[in-house]
Design a protein around this nucleic acid. Sequence first.
RNA 1: UGGGGCGUGGUCCAAUCGGUAGGACACCUCACUGUUAAUGAGGAAGGUGGAGGUUCGAAUCCUCCCGCCCCAG
Length: 379
Amino acid sequence: MPFSFEVLKTDSTGARRGRLTTPHGMVQTPFFLPVGTQASVKALTQETLEELGAEILLANTYHLYLRPGHELIRRLGGLHQFMSWPHAILTDSGGYQVFSLSELRKVTDEGVRFRSHLDGAEHLLTPEKATEIQLALGSDIAMVLDECIETPAPREEAEAALQRTTAWAHRARNYFLECARRDGNLSAQWQFGIVQGATFPDLRRESARQLLDLDFPGYAVGGLAVGEPHEITCAMTAEVTAHLPKDRPRYLMGVGRPEQIADYVALGIDMMDCVLPTRAARHACLYTSEGRVLIKNSRYAEDQRPIDSNCSCAVCRRYTRAYLRHLFAAGEMTAAILATHHNVHFYLDIMRQIREAIEFGNLAKFSSEMHAHYAADPA
RNA sequence: UGGGGCGUGGUCCAAUCGGUAGGACACCUCACUGUUAAUGAGGAAGGUGGAGGUUCGAAUCCUCCCGCCCCAG
């Protein structure tokens, strides 16, 4: 039985400590997925990700479909083999690209018509197509295609996106099960549904209710952290998790800032992903136990301290802030490598601390400390 | 020693017939939340080598001086 999810402990806040078992290894929950859109976490090698303790990565359907192509990856033995990542992989469906590539697409009930940002060619991504691509990639967890809209959105628009997302979820689910049965590998891959509903509590509830009919092994909360205040993100997340089955993993997509993660966990979220640690790292923003360090600031020019004196990562054990600042100033690619290494370590370490805090029942304390450190400015 | 050319923010350059100095890079700061992103936004910084002159008005024209470059000897 390759796939399973079990909640080992739930604390007083509602946070869950558990584990997700996949054909490519067990993943302790709650967990954070480093983002490797194009089958690569920018600036990090798979060796490094393993050293950092990453147990699962996120890759992107849309991007890998355009390049190098899902059929090519299938021929080369699937995504795990292609990128030499024997651990778990979750693939996003391309639903977020509906939102982020808005100038290049047109959404209809049929699917999303994209103009490739690579060569301008037109492509139609349907719920079936997105599923087919993810089956070819062979990720452990596939996401259904959803319609992620901007926030705030008028209610009618949110309702339309919700209905479309549900209709697409039906199609994706049916297609997925059909293919899996046909190929006799029903247990090779999991498929998650995605709740939409923008910032309307009743729509969020309704979206979750509609998806429950499809009996997904896991549910995601999408369309959040796209500009709305943190309180709204939390309120919507709470609204959704309250209506999701307790025995299935909940995935809050695209979050979040370091100090917000424990909040989401306290709302019953088991998994999260975010480009922030990797992208911010490339832009010289380092996350530490005492807040953010914008390493390009001139104040660090002669700072001999490590990025974070409480951090045990390889970068903090060896290099100084002054050196990191110099690397960024000089435009050296090592800057991105070291900064990303540190930030990903920091995020994965936050997750370790959160899992421990759930065990010991002091998640609330951990959360308030993080908020305190990130309210004031850097060390 | 002749002849010619050029001197504009830290750097390289712009600025129509003279109209009240602008850009790039660098610098400083900020923003990044299912990555079209080693990206984007903002800020500070010169009164135009110096001294005179012409003019309502000069980086632009004239004179002298200083500095650099080129070509001749």
